[in-house]
Nucleic acid binder design. Sequence first.
DNA 1: CATGTTTTAAAACGCTTGTTTAAACTGACT
DNA 2: AGTCAGTTTAAACAAGCGTTTTAAAACATG
Lengths: 208, 208
Amino acid sequence: MSTKNKILDAAESLFADKGFNGTSLREITSLAEVNLAAVNYHFGSKKELIKSVMSRYMDELAPNLVAALEDICDHPEQPTLIEVFSAFIEPLLSLNVFRQNGTSNFLQLLGRGYTDSQGFLRWFFTTQYPGVISNFVLAVQKSYPELTPEEIFWRLHFTMGTVVFAMSSSDALMDIAKNDFDKNLDIADVIQKVIPYVAAGVAAPINK
Amino acid sequence: MSTKNKILDAAESLFADKGFNGTSLREITSLAEVNLAAVNYHFGSKKELIKSVMSRYMDELAPNLVAALEDICDHPEQPTLIEVFSAFIEPLLSLNVFRQNGTSNFLQLLGRGYTDSQGFLRWFFTTQYPGVISNFVLAVQKSYPELTPEEIFWRLHFTMGTVVFAMSSSDALMDIAKNDFDKNLDIADVIQKVIPYVAAGVAAPINK
DNA sequence: CATGTTTTAAAACGCTTGTTTAAACTGACT
DNA sequence: AGTCAGTTTAAACAAGCGTTTTAAAACATG
């Protein structure tokens, strides 16, 4: 495996675990078993390394996501919100074959991107991958036309928060569930649990 | 105002803005206009300062929250989930008279506590303020008895995620809402928007 | 006023951070 | 063999970090 990819893999798992601020280049390079200077040689800076880690996932995920959402929009009949959200399942779970723990790593990184680094990653996503968001809004609008664009805006961000947060603590939650309820769940089960929740949330009656 | 309180106030707003990891003691003391060494003199360490900032809010909030939830449990008739979640509104908004921007600062800090510092604050909350969580579970169970304890567990964590995440990026979201929809919202408006969402999410039909 | 304690002040501590330098190595192509 | 771009290495850099030290100032108590 190339030095570049060793760095990306090590950075990914450390970033997901401890955040961008909380991970030093020296931790990354020693986990990757490469020289410290290799990061700046191959990526230029830590900030560019962060972007590269995220791009590797987004470039894989975005086309699948857009395609799945376009399918829903092109379909003649009106979709349910459950169907809209379910469009995310297969592309997200396919990240697990793309990379070990890909799904949960990516979702954790997504959460970090929103809270760490004062939102420079939020800018990165919305400018680099606008198609995902706009197609998602279109699909929701088709499913629930009474919802105003403003209300969609808010509820989509609430949904983003729910999913990202649930997934970033999914390891801890699955452990608790195993202890308290004797249920052995995996990331796919958690996704199945969160979909009815967010679908109902987006479909909530509008508060006057 | 005392040096101690000047430090607490400065730390609070910087922590909310840039996270615990992302804020240095030098930033705090220069905003507070006190000497750098004052932090370690009054608080012992940065970690203890973080705890103090959080305790100042939790000590104010927890009794009000527990009382409001106990009211609901003691009431003879069955509450709606909207009523359960609305029990949080007044205690949360009262933080605004307790301190400027108290509500949003506190909720942002809560979000930081879950994602920064690898969950040592999560331990802090659950061990120091267990009454809030248990009373919340009781109130939800009274409102929606068909929900199994396991499903309550998952949905309460989803709710936690929604609220914490929404609030920790509420500043950015309110800015976008102002630009895109020409609406000037404050933290109380965001709370009003999130309640129907989480109430509907918790009330979602159970997936078989 | 004198005393002992609490609080502030400036400076330095040792350490870690991201980044840069310059030399050494690697593997092809003429 | 010799050249040369591409890559890796060890070492150092300046800057920032949390914390500690030392001494002066402020304070309250007798």
